[in-house]
Structure formats: structure tokens, C-alpha cells
């Protein structure tokens, strides 16, 4: 089983991005997805800049994948997509059928979480079109994964989103700009002020969603660390961690240990993983509402160990 770092979904300063990936090059992730999946206006890094980071990570022994947008609205965005798909060096993650259409029979690709792969027939179709890995859509759970694993073609790997704020929706409207009373066309790149997105609360002060430009995410962090043994037994090939501005390296280490302690039969406790201040969710895994956090016995033990 491998560990991947999903695409950076937020808008960070150029030098922050560069030093972030420098640190990732020394981490135990196997696969790194690079590039912009959310908003085409975010151009702190151009394709050539991403390719420089890609080469650096490649030299450090990482498998690099270039990601692509989940929503295409303008012709210029399709132009950039063509350049990404024709990069000639790194495989591409397709998050829209536009990318699948371009990559089909041209080069092996990865089906991202925003393409709706809900059944074996769709999975077979994408595999025949040249997909060598697929990422399960986030709203699907363990039981569906089990059924899809039993029916998947031989030559396709399965990746599961296991940690991060859930990417739940995309719109034409930029909600971060709306929160500042700015139109999208004059957004002043205000999403740069929110390195982990902008928190939306209910009127009774419950953290609910995260606004990230045209993307809406969960406020809680989806966390399947206690499901790692189950993911292993289901034959999942890759676990995906979604970058956050803080704690990503620690998260990577925690998952790395969770994966490898299983192999050794000696489960390293996760107590030293100092992230229990986050609100977590895992309901989707159980086929229930995604916002639900079902506390496993292990998590309850951890809570009592920390006297919480």
C-alpha cells in the first residue's frame, strides 16, 4: 500500500508552496499530485513552475502526477488542460471528462475523485479508456468500496481519500469573494488570506463548511486513520492525504506508521499525533451522513489517555 499527497486545494503564496513541497520531498509519501484543481485564476505558479517542483520530487524518488481542474468554464482553461495532458513526462489526474476525453488512448491517467465512478460498469469503461488508477468519490463508503473492489478490472489501482477537509461541491460563484462583497471577476485573490479556507458556521455557532473559492468543503476533517487495517484488507492500493497548512507532515507520519505497523503486527500507538484538536468526521465511510464522527474504541482510548 502506498501513501499519496493529494493536490493542494488552497491558494498559498508561491514561496510557501515551493518550501512546502521541499519538505514533502523528504517525507515518506510515495505519490504527489501537483497543480491546480479548483480555480483557474490562481496563477501564483504557472505550469512550468509546477514542472520544476515535479522534477525535484521525481528526483527525490516520488511518483508525480499533474492534476487538472474539476470545472471548465472558459476556452482558455481547456487550452491549459491540453498543455497539461501533453506534458509528455508525468501522468495526469482527470477531474472532468474533458481530461478523460483528451487522455483516452494517449497516455495512462488517473481518474480523480470528482469523476463519478459509482459502479463496476463505469470503472471498466474508464479502465478501457486508459485509466490506471481511480480515486473513489468521497461520498462513497466502505461497503460500496468492497463491492467495487470485487468487480474492478485487473489493471487498475484504487485510491481512497483518507484525510482532509472533504471537497463537497463546485460552483460558478466564488464564495470567498462573495464573503468580501467582491465579484469573482474582481476577486483580488482574497482566498490567499485563508490558507485552509474560510470557515462557515451555522447561526448557532457550529462549524459547518469551509469556503474555498468556487469549492465548498466540509469544516470537519475526514479521517480514516482507524480504518487503515480495513483499507488494507480491501486491497486498496493508495491512501490520499489532502494538504493542510499545518500538520501535514505529522499526518503523513501518522498514516505511514498506521500502514506499516499493520504489516509488522505491532501497532504503533497514535498518541504522539498531536492533532486531536481538529473536529473529525467519517460518516461517509459507514454509508451515513458525511459529517458524522463515529468514534472507534481506539479513538476513545486515545481521548481518555489524553484526559479529554
Amino acid at each position: 500500500m502506498k501513501l499519496s499527497l493529494g493536490p493542494l486545494l488552497y491558494f498559498w503564496e508561491r514561496d510557501v508552496v515551493q518550501s512546502f513541497y521541499q519538505s514533502i520531498s523528504k517525507s515518506p509519501v510515495d505519490i504527489v499530485y501537483l497543480g491546480e484543481a479548483v480555480c483557474s485564476k490562481r496563477r501564483n505558479l504557472k505550469l512550468d513552475d509546477w514542472l520544476i517542483i515535479a522534477d525535484m520530487l521525481d528526483a527525490a524518488g516520488k511518483e508525480v502526477v499533474l492534476t487538472s481542474l474539476a470545472l471548465f468554464e472558459a476556452e482558455s482553461e481547456l487550452g491549459l488542460l491540453k498543455r497539461i495532458c501533453g506534458n509528455g513526462r508525468y501522468p495526469v489526474e482527470a477531474n472532468d471528462m474533458a481530461a478523460v476525453s483528451l487522455l483516452e488512448d494517449q497516455s495512462p491517467f488517473i481518474v480523480g475523485p470528482h469523476i463519478n465512478t459509482y459502479n463496476p460498469s463505469t470503472l471498466a469503461l474508464l479502465s478501457e479508456s486508459g485509466a490506471r488508477r481511480w480515486v473513489m468519490p468521497v461520498e462513497l463508503g466502505g461497503e460500496t468500496l468492497k463491492q467495487l473492489q470485487q468487480a474492478r478490472p485487473d489493471n487498475i489501482e484504487t485510491e481512497v481519500f483518507v484525510y482532509g477537509r472533504l471537497p463537497l461541491a463546485f460552483s460558478a460563484r466564488c464564495y470567498t469573494a462573495r464573503a468580501q462583497n467582491l465579484p469573482k471577476d474582481h476577486c483580488q485573490f482574497c482566498c490567499a488570506s485563508y490558507p485552509d479556507g474560510l470557515l462557515l458556521k451555522t447561526r448557532d455557532a457550529r462549524s459547518f463548511l469551509t469556503l474555498n473559492g468556487i469549492q465548498t468543503q466540509s469544516a470537519s476533517i475526514y479521517n480514516l486513520i482507524y480504518q487503515v487495517p480495513e483499507l488494507v484488507s480491501l486491497g486498496v492500493d493508495v491512501l490520499r492525504i489532502s494538504p493542510q497548512s499545518e500538520g501535514t507532515l505529522e499526518t503523513i507520519d501518522a498514516f505511514y506508521h498506521a500502514m506499516h505497523s499493520e504489516v509488522n503486527g505491532n501497532r504503533k500507538p497514535i498518541e504522539d499525533w498531536q492533532i486531536v484538536d481538529y473536529e473529525f468526521c467519517n460518516g461517509y465511510w459507514y454509508g451515513q451522513e458525511g459529517m458524522l464522527w463515529k468514534r472507534t474504541d481506539e479513538y476513545k482510548n486515545l481521548e481518555s489517555a489524553l484526559n479529554r
Binding site: 463519478n116 463537497l168 461541491a169 460552483s171 458525511g290 459529517m291
Partner: peptide, 21 residues
Amino acid sequence: CIMVEGRCALSSYVTGKSPNA
């Protein structure tokens, strides 16, 4: 619908049921 149809899981996040599924 203000979200891209087919790419919105807000409803299942809250209720377990979405347009897609």
C-alpha cells in the same frame, strides 16, 4: 442549483442522501 450538478455532495454530507446516489 448553484453548484455544478452531479458534483455536489452537500446533501449527503448533512443527511446521508445526495442527488447522485
